[in-house]
Amino acid sequence: MSTDPLPQPKSFQEIILRLQTYWAEKGCAILQPYDMEVGAGTFHPATTLRSLGTQAWAAAYVQPSRRPTDGRYGENPNRLQHYYQYQVLIKPSPPDLQELYLGSLEAIGIDMTLHDIRFVEDDWESPTLGAWGLGWEVWCDGMEVSQFTYFQQVGGHDCKPVSGELTYGLERLAMYVLGIDHVMEMPFNDPQTPIALTYGDVFRQTEQEYSRWNFDVANTDVLLKQFEEAEAACQAILAEPAEDPKTGARIIMAHPAYDQCIKASHIFNLLDARGVISVTERQAYIGRVRALAKLCADAFVETEAGGWVAQEA
């Protein structure tokens, strides 16, 4: 723990930048967001797929995340249909992961001698990814600021070695650190700069637009069709033989298939927000996405990144 507290951050982006710097210094590869719509940072293949297999891994990244049902037209102080998560995944989980995590809180200006940090049991499960782990939600003065999970299973595969995953809800954490009550009022960049922007300046309009679209306009017939297409595409990609007929190389297309799985998952979320999925159907849809996630996990562990090693002839 550092003895010299850092100056308080002034903006949302400064908090992100400090996390990036901190985890870079701790040896993580700083990745960029995945270029597809996902519901949480966990969906990024850098977490889902890389937590599988035996290869060591350390990565950190910001991931824009979409939860169509949480849209509130930009009016709710805490709820957004589009928000940012900060995600760290280290495999195998290092023995001092809790200390590393607490260090990251200090890095963004949380003084451990003034605050009450607690690790409260919260077991994580993703029915759509066929994944679960044990860990905590981390509380700072009674507020949940992160999820801390030791992955035990992903896509139906036991995680060996185990990955440690950290997920920070960036808006909520930043609001707390910056002392802001409504997310739209949070300074996005330094409030002293000539063109100071708030979170609302950047996102209020898009929250309105997407809330309307998510809840009332998104064409459910099209979405249903797209879901089916993504599902079929994922299965078709993985049904291809491992050997590429053109190059003769062994190329299992785990990632392109996983893209289709992500797509299906997001479309399901949109359908859910449109209220066209009944309780029973809901379970069935989740089961279909999970089946895709499992196929992709099965495929990934057959690739080199997933720990597959070519047999010596």
Partner: peptide, 24 residues
């Protein structure tokens, strides 16, 4: 609320944080 920490400000920051979370 029960904190796990004695602080130099006698829990003022902790309490303010908790009150804020509760208000939300």
């Amino acid at each position: 609320t029960v904190a796990n920490q004695e602080t130099t400000d006698n829990g003022a920051t902790i309490l303010a944080g908790n009150e804020k979370v509760l208000a939300a």
